[in-house]
Protein backbone atom coordinates (compact mmCIF):
# COMPACT_ATOMS: atom_id res chain seq x y z
CA UNK A 1 0.00 0.00 0.00
CA UNK A 2 1.27 3.47 -0.87
CA UNK A 3 0.01 6.36 1.21
CA UNK A 4 0.62 10.07 0.78
CA UNK A 5 0.22 12.46 3.69
CA UNK A 6 -0.08 16.21 3.14
CA UNK A 7 1.79 18.05 5.88
CA UNK A 8 1.92 21.81 6.43
CA UNK A 9 4.54 23.70 8.39
CA UNK A 10 2.68 26.18 10.61
CA UNK A 11 3.38 28.46 13.59
CA UNK A 12 3.06 26.84 17.02
CA UNK A 13 -0.52 27.46 18.19
CA UNK A 14 0.93 28.83 21.44
CA UNK A 15 3.01 31.46 19.64
CA UNK A 16 2.16 35.14 19.57
CA UNK A 17 1.44 36.33 16.06
CA UNK A 18 2.74 39.81 15.31
CA UNK A 19 1.45 41.38 12.12
CA UNK A 20 4.13 43.04 9.99
CA UNK A 21 3.23 45.44 7.18
CA UNK A 22 -0.05 45.02 5.35
CA UNK A 23 -0.38 41.26 5.14
CA UNK A 24 2.61 39.50 6.68
CA UNK A 25 3.61 38.34 10.13
CA UNK A 26 6.82 38.02 12.07
CA UNK A 27 7.98 34.51 11.20
CA UNK A 28 10.79 34.35 13.74
CA UNK A 29 8.63 32.12 15.92
CA UNK A 30 8.45 28.37 16.43
CA UNK A 31 6.98 26.40 13.53
CA UNK A 32 5.83 22.78 13.71
CA UNK A 33 3.58 20.16 12.13
CA UNK A 34 0.03 21.42 11.62
CA UNK A 35 -1.86 19.78 14.54
CA UNK A 36 -4.49 18.09 12.35
CA UNK A 37 -1.76 16.66 10.11
CA UNK A 38 -0.39 14.78 13.12
CA UNK A 39 -3.55 12.66 13.13
CA UNK A 40 -3.12 12.10 9.39
CA UNK A 41 0.53 11.03 9.77
CA UNK A 42 -0.37 8.66 12.61
CA UNK A 43 -3.25 7.03 10.74
CA UNK A 44 -1.05 6.54 7.66
CA UNK A 45 1.74 5.02 9.76
CA UNK A 46 -0.65 2.59 11.47
CA UNK A 47 -2.16 1.55 8.16
CA UNK A 48 1.20 0.82 6.55
CA UNK A 49 2.52 -0.90 9.67
CA UNK A 50 -0.42 -3.27 9.33
CA UNK A 51 -0.70 -3.67 5.57
CA UNK A 52 2.90 -3.06 4.47
CA UNK A 53 3.96 -0.41 2.00
CA UNK A 54 5.25 3.12 2.35
CA UNK A 55 4.15 6.48 3.69
CA UNK A 56 5.28 9.47 1.64
CA UNK A 57 4.93 12.95 3.10
CA UNK A 58 4.30 15.89 0.81
CA UNK A 59 4.86 19.42 2.02
CA UNK A 60 4.55 22.73 0.21
CA UNK A 61 6.36 25.42 2.15
CA UNK A 62 9.40 27.57 2.67
CA UNK A 63 12.83 25.95 2.77
CA UNK A 64 12.75 26.24 6.56
CA UNK A 65 9.89 23.70 6.55
CA UNK A 66 12.56 21.00 6.27
CA UNK A 67 12.77 20.90 10.08
CA UNK A 68 9.09 20.10 10.36
CA UNK A 69 9.38 17.53 7.56
CA UNK A 70 12.20 15.78 9.46
CA UNK A 71 10.16 15.72 12.66
CA UNK A 72 7.21 14.27 10.75
CA UNK A 73 9.47 11.57 9.27
CA UNK A 74 10.15 10.36 12.82
CA UNK A 75 6.47 9.44 13.18
CA UNK A 76 6.41 6.31 11.04
CA UNK A 77 6.80 7.76 7.54
CA UNK A 78 9.33 6.58 4.98
CA UNK A 79 10.27 9.51 2.78
CA UNK A 80 9.19 13.02 1.95
CA UNK A 81 8.85 15.49 -0.88
CA UNK A 82 9.18 19.18 -0.08
CA UNK A 83 8.13 21.71 -2.69
CA UNK A 84 9.77 24.99 -1.78
CA UNK A 85 8.11 28.36 -2.26
CA UNK A 86 8.89 31.79 -0.86
CA UNK A 87 5.39 32.28 0.57
CA UNK A 88 3.72 31.00 3.74
CA UNK A 89 0.24 31.59 2.31
CA UNK A 90 -0.72 30.17 -1.04
CA UNK A 91 -4.19 30.10 -2.49
CA UNK A 92 -5.74 26.68 -1.65
CA UNK A 93 -6.33 25.99 -5.32
CA UNK A 94 -2.64 26.57 -5.99
CA UNK A 95 -1.53 24.37 -3.10
CA UNK A 96 -3.82 21.60 -4.30
CA UNK A 97 -2.49 21.91 -7.85
CA UNK A 98 1.07 21.60 -6.56
CA UNK A 99 0.25 18.59 -4.38
CA UNK A 100 -1.51 16.94 -7.29
CA UNK A 101 1.40 17.44 -9.66
CA UNK A 102 3.90 16.06 -7.16
CA UNK A 103 1.73 13.03 -6.46
CA UNK A 104 1.17 12.32 -10.14
CA UNK A 105 4.89 12.56 -10.80
CA UNK A 106 5.71 10.27 -7.88
CA UNK A 107 3.14 7.69 -8.89
CA UNK A 108 -0.37 6.96 -7.65
CA UNK A 109 -1.21 6.12 -4.04
CA UNK A 110 -3.97 4.01 -2.54
CA UNK A 111 -4.92 6.60 0.04
CA UNK A 112 -4.07 10.23 0.68
CA UNK A 113 -4.34 11.58 4.20
CA UNK A 114 -4.41 15.26 5.14
CA UNK A 115 -5.51 17.39 8.06
CA UNK A 116 -8.97 18.91 7.83
CA UNK A 117 -7.50 22.42 8.00
CA UNK A 118 -4.27 24.29 8.54
CA UNK A 119 -4.25 26.32 11.73
CA UNK A 120 -2.73 29.39 10.06
CA UNK A 121 -4.86 30.21 7.02
CA UNK A 122 -7.74 27.90 8.01
CA UNK A 123 -9.13 27.64 4.49
CA UNK A 124 -10.49 24.09 5.02
CA UNK A 125 -10.61 23.16 1.34
CA UNK A 126 -7.21 22.09 0.01
CA UNK A 127 -8.01 18.39 0.46
CA UNK A 128 -11.25 18.80 -1.50
CA UNK A 129 -9.47 20.52 -4.37
CA UNK A 130 -6.77 17.86 -4.43
CA UNK A 131 -9.40 15.12 -4.60
CA UNK A 132 -11.22 16.93 -7.39
CA UNK A 133 -7.98 17.33 -9.33
CA UNK A 134 -7.21 13.64 -8.97
CA UNK A 135 -10.85 12.77 -9.61
CA UNK A 136 -11.18 10.65 -6.45
CA UNK A 137 -13.58 10.81 -3.48
CA UNK A 138 -12.93 12.83 -0.34
CA UNK A 139 -14.26 12.90 3.21
CA UNK A 140 -13.21 15.52 5.73
CA UNK A 141 -13.59 15.99 9.51
CA UNK A 142 -12.86 12.27 9.84
CA UNK A 143 -12.76 10.76 13.34
CA UNK A 144 -12.70 7.05 12.47
CA UNK A 145 -11.07 5.18 9.61
CA UNK A 146 -10.83 1.60 8.38
CA UNK A 147 -10.10 -0.29 5.16
CA UNK A 148 -11.67 -3.55 4.02
CA UNK A 149 -12.12 -5.15 0.59
CA UNK A 150 -10.66 -2.17 -1.28
CA UNK A 151 -13.13 0.17 0.37
CA UNK A 152 -12.49 2.84 2.92
CA UNK A 153 -14.99 3.39 5.67
CA UNK A 154 -14.90 6.57 7.73
CA UNK A 155 -16.90 8.32 10.38
CA UNK A 156 -17.30 12.03 9.97
CA UNK A 157 -18.63 14.45 12.51
CA UNK A 158 -21.58 16.56 11.49
CA UNK A 159 -23.66 19.01 13.50
CA UNK A 160 -25.04 18.41 16.98
CA UNK A 161 -22.74 15.49 17.75
CA UNK A 162 -24.18 13.37 14.92
CA UNK A 163 -21.87 11.29 12.79
CA UNK A 164 -22.04 10.10 9.20
CA UNK A 165 -20.75 6.67 8.29
CA UNK A 166 -19.27 7.01 4.82
CA UNK A 167 -17.93 4.44 2.38
CA UNK A 168 -15.47 5.42 -0.33
CA UNK A 169 -13.79 3.60 -3.17
CA UNK A 170 -9.99 3.63 -3.31
CA UNK A 171 -7.95 5.66 -3.96
CA UNK A 172 -9.48 8.46 -1.90
CA UNK A 173 -8.60 11.44 0.26
CA UNK A 174 -9.20 11.33 4.02
CA UNK A 175 -8.92 14.64 5.93
CA UNK A 176 -8.39 14.04 9.64
CA UNK A 177 -9.96 15.65 12.68
CA UNK A 178 -9.04 15.33 16.34
CA UNK A 179 -10.27 12.05 17.77
CA UNK A 180 -9.07 9.95 14.82
CA UNK A 181 -6.23 8.54 16.93
CA UNK A 182 -3.66 9.37 19.62
CA UNK A 183 -0.51 10.45 17.75
CA UNK A 184 2.68 8.79 18.95
CA UNK A 185 5.59 10.62 20.53
CA UNK A 186 8.80 10.10 18.55
CA UNK A 187 11.46 8.02 20.27
CA UNK A 188 15.08 9.10 20.03
CA UNK A 189 16.09 6.28 17.62
CA UNK A 190 13.20 7.31 15.34
CA UNK A 191 14.41 10.89 15.36
CA UNK A 192 17.93 9.71 14.47
CA UNK A 193 16.65 7.50 11.66
CA UNK A 194 14.50 10.32 10.32
CA UNK A 195 17.63 12.36 9.68
CA UNK A 196 18.73 9.82 7.12
CA UNK A 197 15.41 9.39 5.35
CA UNK A 198 15.05 10.71 1.82
CA UNK A 199 13.68 14.23 1.42
CA UNK A 200 13.35 15.24 -2.18
CA UNK A 201 13.34 19.02 -2.51
CA UNK A 202 11.74 20.55 -5.57
CA UNK A 203 11.59 24.28 -6.28
CA UNK A 204 8.06 25.34 -7.17
CA UNK A 205 9.28 26.97 -10.38
CA UNK A 206 10.64 23.63 -11.57
CA UNK A 207 7.20 22.02 -11.50
CA UNK A 208 6.17 24.05 -14.52
CA UNK A 209 2.70 24.84 -13.20
CA UNK A 210 0.62 27.88 -14.04
CA UNK A 211 -1.05 28.95 -10.82
CA UNK A 212 -4.30 30.90 -10.79
CA UNK A 213 -3.96 32.68 -7.41
CA UNK A 214 -7.56 33.85 -7.40
CA UNK A 215 -7.68 34.53 -3.67
CA UNK A 216 -5.56 37.45 -2.43
CA UNK A 217 -4.71 38.18 1.17
CA UNK A 218 -5.24 41.94 1.28
CA UNK A 219 -4.67 42.72 4.94
CA UNK A 220 -3.95 40.96 8.18
CA UNK A 221 -5.04 42.70 11.39
CA UNK A 222 -4.13 41.92 14.96
CA UNK A 223 -7.06 41.07 17.22
CA UNK A 224 -6.42 42.44 20.70
CA UNK A 225 -7.34 40.30 23.72
CA UNK A 226 -10.15 41.59 25.89
CA UNK A 227 -9.05 43.64 28.81
CA UNK A 228 -9.25 42.04 32.24
CA UNK A 229 -12.50 40.81 33.73
CA UNK A 230 -14.72 42.77 36.04
CA UNK A 231 -14.50 40.53 39.10
CA UNK A 232 -17.79 40.12 40.90
CA UNK A 233 -17.05 39.70 44.60
CA UNK A 234 -19.09 39.05 47.70
CA UNK A 235 -20.89 35.90 48.79
CA UNK A 236 -21.68 33.12 46.32
CA UNK A 237 -25.40 33.92 46.29
CA UNK A 238 -24.80 37.66 46.07
CA UNK A 239 -22.24 37.19 43.29
CA UNK A 240 -24.42 35.02 41.07
CA UNK A 241 -27.39 37.37 41.64
CA UNK A 242 -25.31 40.31 40.47
CA UNK A 243 -23.97 38.34 37.50
CA UNK A 244 -27.45 37.31 36.36
CA UNK A 245 -28.65 40.90 36.69
CA UNK A 246 -25.74 42.13 34.53
CA UNK A 247 -26.28 39.44 31.89
CA UNK A 248 -30.01 40.14 31.73
CA UNK A 249 -30.19 43.89 32.09
CA UNK A 250 -26.88 45.38 30.96
CA UNK A 251 -25.54 42.89 28.43
CA UNK A 252 -28.98 41.56 27.43
CA UNK A 253 -27.46 38.21 26.41
CA UNK A 254 -30.01 36.10 28.27
CA UNK A 255 -33.69 36.61 28.96
Amino acid sequence: MKVFVCVKNVPDTAANIRVVGENSFDESIKFLINPYDEYAIEEAARLVEKEGGEVVLVTVGKESAIKTVRSALALGSHRAILVTTDKQFLDSADTAAILQKVMEDDGPADIIFAGKQAVDSEAMQTAYRLAEGLNIPIASDVTEFSVANDKVSVEREIGGGEREIIEMTMPCVVAASKGLNEPRYPKLPDVMKAKKKEVKQIALADLGLTLTSETKLVTLEQVPDRSGAKIIGGSVSGGVAELVKILREDEKVIS
Binding site: I17, V119, L217
Partner: peptide
Protein backbone atom coordinates in the same frame (compact mmCIF):
# COMPACT_ATOMS: atom_id res chain seq x y z
CA UNK B 1 -6.31 33.60 10.45
CA UNK B 2 -4.24 31.93 13.17
CA UNK B 3 -7.37 30.85 15.06
CA UNK B 4 -8.65 34.29 15.85
CA UNK B 5 -5.34 35.93 16.75
CA UNK B 6 -5.61 37.91 13.52
CA UNK B 7 -8.32 38.73 11.01
CA UNK B 8 -7.61 38.52 7.32
CA UNK B 9 -9.33 40.40 4.54
CA UNK B 10 -9.41 38.26 1.42
CA UNK B 11 -10.30 39.38 -2.05
Amino acid sequence: YFSGKTIATLK
